[in-house]
Design a protein around this nucleic acid. Structure first.
Lengths: 115, 115
DNA sequence: TGCGTATATAAGCATATAATTATACGATGT
DNA sequence: ACATCGTATAATTATATGCTTATATACGCA
C-alpha cells in the first residue's frame, strides 16, 4: 500500500461505521452503477422517505455522494473524486451486483430517467 | 470479484459495523502482525480491562479472532481461516502499520512474550 | 397564484452501543 | 489452602443511532 493511499484509523473507522449499515452499504453499491433519486431509493428499500433522506445526508456529510437537482428530482451519485474513494471501491468490489433492484424498478414503472 | 468471494450485504454490513470502531479496527491491524494478550491491549489503548475484553468478545463472537490461553495470559490472534478474511485483509491493507505501538510496549517493559 | 410532487429537516422515541463499576473465574506461586 | 494476577461477565448508565410523525422548502404545472 503506497503512502498516499494510507488512511488514518480515525478516518477509516468513520467511513466503515457509515458503511456498516445495510441500507447505506446497498445505496453505495447501487450508486456505483446507477445514479438514483430519492424516490427510487424509497421504492427499492421499501422505507419511508425521511428515513432514506437521513441515510443520504450522512453519506453526503462526509462527501461520499454528491447531489444534483434535475427538475423536481434530486439525483445522487458517487463522489469518485473523494480522497478515500479507492478504499470505498475496494470494499464495494466484494458485494454482489444490484442490477435486479434497478430492473425491478423499471418493471414497476418507478425508474426515473432524466435526460 | 469471483463468485466465491462475494459477500452478502447483511454479512458485509455486520463486519463493517464491527470494524467501524477505532479501537476494534486498530486491534485487528495490530493482530495482523503480532498476537497480543489482553493486558497489552489495555496498555496500548490506555483503556480499562473490561472495555478491552468486551471489544475482543465482539470480534470473537463472529470468529474474526481466536483466543488461546498461555499460562496466565490469553493471547488473541487473527483467524485467517475465516471465510471473509480476504475481505477483512483488503480493508486492513489501507491502514498504517502499528509497529510503534508494539515498540512502545517493549520500551515500557509491558510486552508479554510466551514461548 | 395555488396545488401537487419531491425532498429536507426537526422533534420525539425506542433500541443499540460503549463505557464504568463490581464481581466471578481460572491459573500461578507460596 | 490462600493470595495474587490476568481475564471474563453482569449490571448500570450515558450516549449514539435509526426510525416515525409532523412540518418546511423547492420545483413544475394549471
Amino acid at each position: 500500500m503506497d503512502r498516499g493511499e494510507v488512511i488514518e484509523f480515525q478516518r477509516a473507522s468513520q467511513l466503515l461505521k457509515l458503511l456498516g449499515d445495510k441500507t447505506r452499504l446497498t445505496m453505495m453499491k447501487l450508486l456505483q452503477t446507477h445514479d438514483c433519486c430519492v424516490c427510487e431509493f424509497v421504492a427499492i428499500f421499501n422505507m419511508s422517505q425521511p428515513a432514506v433522506s437521513q441515510h443520504l445526508r450522512k453519506l453526503r456529510d462526509i462527501e461520499l455522494v454528491k447531489e444534483e437537482r434535475k427538475g423536481q428530482w434530486i439525483f445522487y451519485s458517487i463522489n469518485t473524486e473523494h480522497e478515500d474513494y479507492p478504499f470505498i471501491q475496494s470494499i464495494l468490489a466484494y458485494l454482489p451486483e444490484q442490477d435486479e433492484s434497478i430492473a425491478a424498478l423499471e418493471t414497476q414503472g418507478l425508474r426515473i430517467i432524466c435526460e
